[in-house]
């Protein structure tokens, strides 16, 4: 890990991030906008898939998915830059690693959705209740992403492991 930290701190991107007083706040702003798009679109998709909001056509909620990916893309890009800007602090922080673990859980859960739910979703009744498997995946998604949000906000306050 020390080799990784040294390599990052010698990189041009690291210099770019720490070299400007504006880089960090601008990245934070983008990270906050990204999390609003990611979680906002997932709230609608997942809560409907969990059986709430039945007035909303469940088969149409996937139209929000591009905004989930836009939000995730913004946060992946700015997130990588945060780590490159301050590698020693993040790699030593247990909250950061738990956050990354939950991102991985959310990713595997999304894969589960893609394999098991996405192919059959189009055959669902638009305003009916949803199967137990869909509800399970929806709640895992919401819990893992809100866990990511909480851990992310608490990184500055959680001990360094």
């Amino acid at each position: 890990m020390q080799a990784f930290v040294s390599a990052v701190e010698g990189s041009a991107i690291h210099q770019l991030v720490v070299g400007s007083a504006w880089a960090w706040p601008v990245m934070e702003i983008i990270h906050f906008i990204g999390l609003s798009l990611l979680l906002g679109s997932l709230l609608v998709i997942d809560l409907r898939m969990a059986g709430f909001f039945r007035k909303i056509d469940v088969t149409a909620t996937h139209q929000l998915l591009p905004w989930t990916f836009i939000g995730f893309g913004l946060n992946l890009a700015t997130g990588v830059l945060f780590v490159m800007g301050d590698p020693a602090r993040y790699t030593a922080n247990i909250g950061f690693w738990w956050k990354m673990f939950l991102v991985a859980v959310a990713g595997l859960n999304a894969l589960w959705f893609w394999v098991k739910i996405n192919p059959v979703m189009k055959t669902w009744e638009p305003h009916a209740d949803t199967p137990v498997l869909a509800k399970t995946i929806a709640w895992i998604s919401l819990c893992s992403w809100f866990g990511v949000l909480l851990l992310g906000r608490l990184i500055p306050y959680i001990g360094t492991g």
Partner: peptide
């Protein structure tokens, strides 16, 4: 405050995007 931010901004912005003309399958 971060959880509330995600809920209020996320939900209202998704509603606004629908009103502007996206997500045509949602009434």
């Amino acid at each position: 405050h971060a959880v509330g931010l995600a809920i209020v901004v996320g939900t209202f912005v998704m509603r606004d995007l629908r009103l502007i003309g996206l997500f045509k399958g949602i009434s």
